[in-house]
Write a protein that binds this DNA or RNA. Structure first.
Length: 753
RNA sequence: GGGCACAUAGCUCAGCGGUAGAGCGCUGCAUUCACAUUGCAGAUGCCGGGGGUUCAAAUCCCUCUGUGCCCACCA
């Protein structure tokens, strides 16, 4: 054996050896209960980060432990298409070429992103390998694989049949110039100075003691014609008296009721708000709470619609000035604050984005969320650390209907279809055969274009609220166009444990479902874990896993969140290169004990590089001693007791205790405790004390005990530091009972007592 | 505004009712010995402040202060 352990020499070849041996693929044995973990699929276009490292380290420990205990063990890998995030990344690339998403029709854009992702996917897979993850590659799944999207669409179909799906209005960032919606994270915010108008609303049925007007401050006078209500804060003593009273609309003269809602800040402006539910997120929420009408005032082209009467057709920005002038003429403007500064939303092209209410697809969660909380409450699904249960409970109790449609191309297209003859008002944007972008309602467009041409160049389709639709996995007829929205990523990944195993009829599904442990970062407890439980219960009646272990967030060395802009991002590959994967894994595991957030433990990683070398040298010493002795030595066996010294008995007892403790710790997801216990035993009991005492002895029994300690230490360590232990295992063949056996599939230690 | 967590040795953290712990760092000493990616020895703490429960509190309860994060958020 070499004098020191050099991880560069072993990691790659050992991984290959494991993989080729078939050790990662479980043998289905109906008589045994399998142990199953579905790997939370990393983003297909992303790079490995420290969080992934921790995740893989923890899951690999559990998997290797159970595998060594002889259970059929499946760890199923995959990657996620990460809809919005990936599309944004790709569009950044497009921008470098002077293009954007509007340069392509839907299908072409999708195909381009597909190719882009394919290139990166191999990167992620390579990194999972590098970590030593003993995943079953033969079962690898991608969220956009046809067998997965099929299951996801079928679920949608079933939910629609069960009356759990509806189309409803939702607030969305819409850019009239681009003709499309943008996700919240795509929006840029800019400080801007705009006039703040103080507008007078004449009070209806005014009493003598009351003022003539109520005054409202707004930067947006242009949608006043659709406004139907004002609001004040009910806690506001001065103004709550107006609740239930009416004012007249300064533009149309119609009556507007005043309502009370906590949203209103009594200290801002005049403490009275005009509500424009269709074009402001807050107002929209208020309107939903109070059941107010939600009426849009703008067209998809960014002009005032026909409700604006004489003003209809004006662009929003012009309308603001024109309407402000009109109000001024009527004497209904009290004052204008020209220096008002606020933030506005801009799309990537720099256009002003209009918050707009557009129809979206929703899932009714009322019936789904209750059982999903019940299983956790009853302990059928256990959450570790236990205090995270409260987060889950809170989320489940407050969860509201889930908007599942995204205005992205990169995702699973919603299998809903609109008949063009029954929905003439659908807005369509497409690229015609000459490469020109056409926009308009479908009935107008059809006057000039064929269904085929529209379908081929289709970019987006917006069917008004109340449009007739059919849900179908295939095209229901010639005169149909498919919904252009895609599913929220969490809608598909929420079905991941089911979909990856081939729900509902495959052998895998029947044998491996429900899975054993879901291990993931706590930040997606509500986004992801809750959805998986909901879908699992809805489709199979069983929760998709028994235990949920939530690991903490790995923060940067300075204790702050890692971020590109702070420049404190840690690249795990540098640590793998320098210290080896084993050291990185072990360092992360012992960096924190119980799922709390923690800073990247750089010192510990270095420490465990040294520990890997310690293991190597303990083995080297044992092997050399054995070879020097130069005759066969029997194995330690309860049935044939040998004469032991006090030190022998003590350390064997310690090993037994250690084995029991490790089993207990791992069973309770106490990874750091388990790792530390083994570390202390190997370094301080075995190496520092026992080996030193062996050096003074010349009896065979010392060697028998030493070999027993080494072999069992390697086994206990293997789940934590798989490479160095397997490398040593190969070196100490002469010491082993079964020289052909690999450590990865060797039996887990049994206490002698 | 609602919630969760954390405050212990110079640093990073474990311990969570019975005499203060680890790793790194620090101070000595050891060196052809399996390993200098080493060994041995050592120093370092009013366990955030205040109150309470208890024979006994870093550990349980209350409160204050500070920090991090999650959710909801300004016409």
């Amino acid at each position: 054996m070499d004098k020191a352990y050099d991880h560069h020499k072993y990691e790659e070849s050992i991984y290959k050896m494991w993989e080729e041996s078939g050790a990662f693929t479980p043998k289905i044995d109906e008589g045994k209960k399998p142990f199953v973990i579905i790997l939370p699929p990393p983003n297909a276009s992303g790079k490995m980060h420290t969080g992934n490292v921790l995740m893989i380290a923890i899951e690999d420990i559990l998997i290797r432990w159970h595998r060594m205990m002889g259970e059929p063990t499946l760890w199923l890998p995959g990657s996620d298409h990460a809809g919005t995030e990936t599309q944004i990344t790709y569009e950044r690339e497009l921008k470098k070429e002077g293009k954007s998403r509007f340069s392509f029709d839907r299908q072409t854009l999708y195909d381009n992103i597909w190719n882009f992702v394919q290139n990166n996917k191999s990167l992620v897979i390579g990194q999972i390998r590098k970590m030593g993850a003993s995943v079953d590659w033969s079962r690898f799944k991608f969220t956009l694989d046809p067998e997965i999207t099929n299951i996801v669409c079928q679920t949608f179909e079933k939910m629609a049949a069960d009356n759990l799906v509806y189309r409803g209005d939702n607030m969305i960032n819409y850019c009239p110039n681009c003709g499309t919606t943008y996700a919240d994270i795509e929006i840029e915010h800019e400080e801007r100075n705009d006039p703040l108008y103080y507008i007078r609303y004449p009070l209806v049925n005014k009493k003598v003691t009351e003022p003539e007007y109520l005054v409202v401050a707004t930067v947006r006078p242009e949608p006043i014609f659709i406004d139907t209500h004002l609001a004040v804060n009910p806690e506001d003593k001065k103004r709550s008296v107006w609740i239930g009273r009416k004012v007249s609309n300064p533009l149309t003269g119609g009556e507007m009721e005043i309502i009370g809602d906590e949203m209103v800040d009594p200290k801002f402006g005049t403490g009275i708000v005009k509500l424009t539910p269709a074009h402001d997120e807050n107002d929209f929420q208020v309107a939903k709470r109070h059941g107010l009408p939600i009426v849009s005032g703008f067209t998809m082209e960014g002009r005032l619609n026909d409700k604006a009467g004489e003003f209809s057709g004006l662009k929003i920005s012009e309308a603001r000035k024109v309407i402000a002038e009109r109000l001024k003429d009527k004497g209904l403007i009290e004052k204008i604050d020209e220096s008002y500064s606020h933030t506005i939303s801009l799309c990537k092209a720099g256009h002003v984005v209009e918050p707009t209410v557009l129809p979206n697809w929703f899932i009714k969660v009322e019936q789904l969320k209750k059982p999903a909380w019940e299983v956790v409450k009853k302990g059928e699904v256990r959450i570790y650390p236990t205090w995270r249960k409260i987060t889950y409970q809170r989320w489940m109790e407050t969860m509201h209907d889930w908007a599942i449609s995204r205005q992205n191309v990169w995702g699973i297209r919603i299998p809903a279809w609109y008949n063009v003859d029954e929905n003439k008002e659908m807005a369509v944007t497409f690229i015609n055969s000459e490469g020109k972008t056409e926009k308009g309602t479908v009935d107008k467009i059809l006057e000039a274009y064929s269904m085929e041409e529209i379908n081929k160049g289709l970019q987006t389709l917006t069917a008004p609220t109340g449009s007739k639709y059919q849900i179908s996995l295939t095209k229901p007829g010639e005169r149909f166009l498919q919904e252009t929205n895609t599913f929220d990523t969490w809608f598909s990944s929420g079905q991941w444990p089911l979909a990856t195993l081939g729900y509902p009829n495959s052998d895998d599904f029947k044998y491996f479902y429900p899975t054993s442990v879901m291990e993931t970062g706590w930040e997606i407890l509500s986004k992801w874990v809750s959805r998986m439980i909901m879908f699992g219960l809805y489709l199979t009646g069983k929760p998709p896993f028994e235990d949920v272990y939530l690991h903490g967030i790995v923060k940067a060395l300075d204790g702050r969140k890692m971020s590109k802009s702070l420049g404190n991002v840690i690249n795990p590959e540098e640590y793998i290169e320098q210290f080896g994967v084993d050291a990185l894994r072990m360092g992360m595991i012992l960096g924190t004990a119980n799922g709390k957030d923690f800073n990247f433990p750089r010192d510990k990683v270095l420490g465990f590089r040294n520990f890997a070398n310690k293991i190597w040298n303990v083995s080297r010493f044992t092997l050399m001693t054995y070879e020097k002795y130069n005759q066969p030595v029997p194995y330690l066996d309860k049935a044939r007791p040998i004469k032991m010294l006090q030190t022998d008995r003590e350390i064997i007892e310690k090993l037994d205790t250690l084995t029991k403790n490790v089993n207990r710790y791992l069973g309770n997801f106490r990874f750091a405790d388990a790792g530390e216990a083994i570390y202390n035993f190997v370094w301080h009991d075995l190496a520092d004390k026992y080996i030193e005492s062996v050096k003074m002895r010349d009896d065979e029994n010392a060697l028998i005990v030493l070999r027993h300690l080494l072999i069992n230490s390697l086994k206990l360590l293997h789940p934590f530091m798989p490479f160095v232990t397997e490398a040593v295992w190969a070196e100490i063949k002469p010491l082993r009972m079964y020289p052909d056996e690999m450590l990865i599939t060797a039996g887990w230690p049994q206490p002698l007592s």
